[in-house]
Structure formats: C-alpha cells, structure tokens
Design a protein around this nucleic acid. Structure first.
Lengths: 152, 152
DNA sequence: CCGACTTTTCAGAAATTTCTAAACACTCGG
DNA sequence: CCGAGTGTTTAGAAATTTCTGAAAAGTCGG
C-alpha cells in the first residue's frame, strides 16, 4: 500500500477518467502528473520522463492546460527551467469551461427557433431545448458561488 | 428566411455543437434531425435519406441515442417501419448523463487519496478534487428538481 | 555574445475513431 | 410459408485525431 506503483496506477486511471470527461489524452495524463506529484511544482522535462512521452507532446499538453486555466506557470525560482503547478481553483475552472458548451447549445437552439415557423413541431422542440439551457446557464453562477463559500 | 435550406443549415450547426458537447458525430447529426423534423416521429430510413448517410450508421446512431435515453421507440402505428421521436425530458437526460462522469471523477479522486500518505502534497490536491466533485454531485438533484418544477 | 540547456514547432507516422457497403435477420401481408 | 420491405451487424475502408522525432528558437550564466 501507498507505494509508488500504486500511485502511478491511480494516476493513470484518473487520466482515463479525465479523457472520458472530454480532455485530450496527453492533456489528461499530464494533469494526472500535476495531481500526483509529491513536489510543489514540476517542469516539462519531469513530466515527459514520468509519462515516457516525447517533449513535444508534453509541450502541447502544457500549452492547452495553461489555456484552459488548469495550471499556471510559476515565477522561475532561480532555475533555468519553467515550473508549473495545478491552480487552486482548477476543478471549478474545468467545470466552468463546459459553460461555453452550454452557451453554444443555447445559441444553436436560438438559431433553430429563428429558422422555423411558429406552428412547426420543430419550433416547439427547439423552444424546449432553449428553455432548458437557459435555465442551466442561469443556475451556474449561484452554484459556483455556493462552492466558493463552502470551500473558501 | 424560414426556408428548408436555412433549417438544414441550422440543424447541421446544432449537430456540430452537440459534437463539441461530447456526442459522436453521427449521433449528433441524427439528434439534430429529430429536433428539426416537421413530423411527430421519423423512421431510420427517413433519417438516412435526410443525412445522406448509410442505413448502417443511422442504425448505430439510433441505438446509442436509445441507450442514453434521448429518443424513444413508438408503438408501431400500423406501419411496418419503426418510428422514433425525441423524448420530452431529453435535455435533462443529456445533462444528467454527465453525472456518470462526475461519479467517475469522484471515485478516481478517492482512489488517489487512498494511494497517498497524509503529508504528501498530492494527498491534499486529491482531497480538494474530491471535495469539489462531491459538492457537485450533491447539488445536481436539487438543480434538476428546480428545472422540473419550473418547466412543469 | 557564446554555449549549454530547455522548450516549442511542425511535418509525417501511428493509432484510434467513424463510416460504409453488403450480407444477414426480422416482420408482416398475402 | 413466401417474398417484399426494413432494420441490424460487421469487416474493412476512410478520415480524423494524436504522438513523435528532429530541427529551430528561446533563455540564462558566464
């Protein structure tokens, strides 16, 4: 128990789950490293070594994780290498990033409504879809607020 | 405005959005047909014709949409062909299906916690992750309840 | 500025996902 | 039962996504 192998195993399983959740393969594995490392921050080279992946794919993964706001670049602590670490609000951020999907759904529904006549059954269906995603979008801020209150 | 071509266009755009949201390509396009059709129900053949896709791929898409609970098979109204239609609570269902992802995240975090020592920074990070997804899972039932109340 | 070290970029390879076509199976009217 | 009309399955093709390796670019100490 609690040995390195078990941790590696748990990290890879977590990566698979993240992939299910929509992340790209290498981004997911990289994120798992950020979670399971016993250091405060890691470098791209360390990640590549641990994952046995090329420097190139790690670079791409870091870039995308930075873009989504899941990790952050640290002010270099006297070393030549860049250090990165998981951001505090990473999980809320990951969840929030799905809001863009919701907004896209809302827009798509609105477009559909505009393209159909009022009597058309499609009009009705699209209106229902629109109502749901509008509801959802309205609920999310309060949800995140409750989270920050509870955890902060 | 409001012509067939515009509707087809809106349907394809909606399909792309659904793909962004995680659906498979053909499932998304099929779902878009269910939304935009001016009939109450459609058959596999009609979908294949409208999408200019093979009967096989449509069959697969229908099967997966049935499994997730987004569409339903109708009691055959005297015709030889099977009829399908969008279910009333389709959007809530689609949203709910992401709960399995959340539960998987929760489990993955728990496994990671079990695999790390208490003093390890990783232990701390995994605990935060666990807390967030536990919070999320707890909020969802009430969220859906509010939706069902509001929409009647 | 130079040189060692690290990261990024990008074209091509590898792997995975997705679609199709064709054979098979099912259902119903006659 | 048979045959016409539909739906399903599956092996393989096509397309897309993802990864790698090598070269280019950036950075910092000296």
């Amino acid at each position: 128990m609690n040995d390195r192998y078990e941790q590696w195993q748990a990290a890879e399983r977590l990566a698979l789950t993240l992939i299910e959740g929509g992340l790209q393969r290498m981004s997911a594995r990289t994120l798992a490293v950020f979670l399971f490392t016993d250091r405060d921050s890691v470098t791209a080279g360390e990640i590549a070594e641990r994952l046995e992946a090329s420097a190139g794919s790690v670079s791409g993964a870091i870039k995308s994780l930075l873009t989504v706001g899941l990790i952050e670049r640290l002010p270099a602590p006297g070393s030549r290498r860049e250090h990165y670490r998981l951001r505090d609000d990473a999980w809320a951020t990951l969840f929030t990033s799905q809001n863009t999907v919701i907004q896209a759904m809302l827009q798509a529904a609105a477009d559909g409504i505009a393209a159909t006549e009022n009597g058309d059954p499609a009009h009705q269906r699209l209106a229902q879809m629109h109502a749901f995603y509008e509801f959802l979008l309205g609920e999310l801020p309060a949800l995140l607020h409750r989270w920050h209150q509870q955890s902060g």
